[in-house]
């Protein structure tokens, strides 16, 4: 079955690199240990190339190209650190940081911001949260005086016991929509709605999740890069200042429910499971789980669960023991 892929010669920042035909520029970069920043890209999802933080300069191309999805071509000369690349990456990071709450984003984002000298403050003070982001008319907006920088800040949505959605932190990377849709769960409970700066992730008519097609697989949370989507357990612990990632262990094991054999990564703090994820690179389900694998662990906990006791109380008790 194995067909030897044709090798393609390209250069990356002047270094000659040989990669298989059909590889992306990102894969070629990674093959020589030159990772590129990515936000909307994930190994187990179809590239949507919307965040544009991974752009690189390809000789002869009028515009920069997204390395996550652009395929290599023979003789391609790629620059990953040119003035244009650095500028675009800086601006993308500034745009996101000035419009979105990145406090729970992957810490590597802050490193990139330092590296590219992104300064989100130069757009002015952040505009306050608004509560109408789900009902704005498409193609129209309120014209501001420009003194504050428009943001996506808005109240968090907490409509069920398992998830919370804080779209103040949403960078619209489309990953959750892909994971809910054809890339993994095929449930299609959420989609991108609206347009332009008012584009957002939404159920139909902004219905609560409990009134949507959601099956609570948590795969959207599993792929969210900013913490906009969070398990209630993590959210409540963070609110109670009891989330201590540095004290957590992560152990990979197999789900105790059906026969698919999904790999679970149990995040354990104080001998309690506080979060379940799944390795993206495992062939059984490529990082995706169902509601039972994702949430059905409470029965091995020593103390009560969210159904009856708020988790911050549960964990506070555990800590004082």
């Amino acid at each position: 079955m194995s067909v030897t892929a044709t090798a393609i010669q390209i250069t990356i920042d002047g270094r000659p690199v040989e990669v298989a035909a059909g590889s992306t520029i990102l894969e070629a970069c990674r093959s020589i240990g030159e990772d590129q920043p990515t936000l909307c890209y994930l190994e187990n999802l179809t590239p949507v190339n919307v965040c544009r933080v991974c752009v690189v300069e390809v000789e002869g191309s009028r515009t920069l190209v997204p390395s996550c999805s652009r395929l290599v071509e023979d003789g391609m000369a790629v620059a990953t650190d040119s003035v244009r690349v650095r500028h675009s990456r800086k601006m993308v990071l500034e745009f996101l940081a000035s419009s979105t709450d990145l406090t729970t984003a992957d810490p590597v984002v802050a490193e990139w911001m330092d590296h590219y000298e992104a300064d989100p403050d130069r757009y002015g003070p952040a505009a306050p949260p608004s509560d109408d982001r789900d009902s704005r008319a498409t193609g129209h907006h309120h014209v501001s005086d420009g003194l504050a920088a428009e943001t996506v800040y808005q109240p968090a949505k907490i409509d069920n016991t398992l998830y919370m959605r804080d779209y103040s932190k949403c960078i619209l990377c489309y990953k959750c929509v892909e994971a809910c849709g054809a890339d993994a769960q095929n449930t299609f409970a959420i989609a991108i709605a609206g347009r332009g700066f008012d584009a957002r992730v939404s159920t139909e008519f902004d219905e609560p999740l409990t009134n949507s097609a959601c099956v609570y697989c948590g795969n959207c949370i599993g792929v969210c890069p900013t913490g906009a989507l969070m398990f209630r357990s993590e959210y409540e612990l963070r609110r109670a200042d009891l989330w201590h990632e540095e004290d957590q262990t992560v152990t990979t094991t197999i789900c105790s429910y059906c026969g698919v054999g999904c790999n679970l990564e149990l995040h354990v703090q104080d001998n309690r499971i506080v979060k379940v994820t799944s390795p993206l690179d495992h062939s059984v389900t490529d990082g995706h789980l169902c509601i039972k694998g994702r949430f059905g662990y409470e029965y091995v906990q020593e103390l009560g669960d969210l159904a009856t006791t708020p988790i911050d109380i549960v964990l506070a008790e555990a800590r004082t023991k």
Binding site: N49, V50, C51, R52, V53, S88, M91, V92, F95, L96, S98, S99, Y123, G124, G139, H140, H141, V143, S144, D145, G146, L147, A149, E150, I171, L172, I192, G194, R195, G196, F197, D198, A199
Partner: peptide, 29 residues
Amino acid sequence: FRDESCGQCVPCRVGTVRQEELLARHLTS
């Protein structure tokens, strides 16, 4: 341009807003 940006990519989705704000900031203040 802000109204008509599809909102998909960051440079355009946010860039069109920041452009309008810079202009407005200058003209109103």
